[in-house]
Simulated scan of single mutants.
Amino acid sequence: MKRTALFPGSFDPFTKGHEDIVRRGLKLFDEIIIGIGRNVRKERYFPLEQMIQLIEEAFSDEPAVRIISYEDLTASVARSEGARFLLRGLRNTTDFEYENGISQVNRFVYEEVETVFLITSPHLAPISSSIIRDLHRYGQNVDEFLPYKLVQPS
């Protein structure tokens, strides 16, 4: 049976920390679907279409990775995509507390799904999408935190 994992998130932006989780996850799974959840109540900083393209370019060397966007419950998307696993990265205990609750709800929605947590590599743990957005918004170069290049705001 093919082991497919859904790696869900807003990925606004997708960071080297996220890339690290996916590349390490490929040692555990046959396929990883990077799922960009769309929240209609929340405006994105980086356009969804741009982020999909940048992530596709970052994984152009990995045929076992594909990218989707969705507007549904994560567990429902996992079920419809045939993913029996949810892949999540943990930077710290705060992430664990948050992710633990979500994993319980996902099991309620889709009983067969298992959440697999990978601890973020230590040198990438300080990176967060919100910090990168703030740095980028104020004209700082954030290339060292991302697996692709961004255009600096004018």
Rank of each mutant, 00 (worst) to 15 (best):
S103M: 10
E114V: 03
E56W: 00
D30E: 06
E111I: 05
L124W: 08
I68H: 00
N92L: 01
E43G: 00
N100E: 12
E57K: 11
L48M: 13
V109W: 04
N39F: 07
A64F: 05
N106L: 06
A75D: 10
H123Q: 15
T93P: 12
E111D: 13
L118P: 05
R66T: 05
I131G: 13
K27F: 11
R91I: 10
Y110R: 04
L48D: 12
D61H: 14
R133N: 10
G101P: 00
V65W: 03
A58F: 02
T120L: 12
V109M: 12
L28E: 08
Q104L: 15
D134E: 10
A78T: 03
Y98Q: 07
G101R: 07
F85C: 02
L86T: 10
R23P: 03
D72A: 12
D72T: 00
I21F: 07
S76I: 03
Y110G: 00
V65S: 04
S130G: 06
Y98N: 09
F46K: 02
E62C: 12
E43N: 11
K27Q: 13
L87P: 05
S121F: 08
D95P: 10
Y110F: 15
F46T: 04
R44M: 04
E56L: 13
G25T: 12
D134Y: 09
E31L: 09
N100C: 13
R88I: 02
L90R: 12
L28I: 08
V109R: 10
F96L: 14
R91Q: 08
L28D: 03
D72E: 07
E81V: 15
Q53M: 10
P47M: 02
A83C: 13
V116T: 13
V22I: 11
V40T: 06
G35W: 12
H123A: 14
I55T: 04
L135H: 11
V116A: 11
G101N: 11
E56M: 01
S80E: 13
M51C: 05
D20T: 08
F46D: 06
P126I: 15
F46R: 02
R23G: 04
A64H: 10
V77E: 06
N39M: 08
R79G: 02
E62P: 02
R88F: 09
N106E: 07
V116F: 10
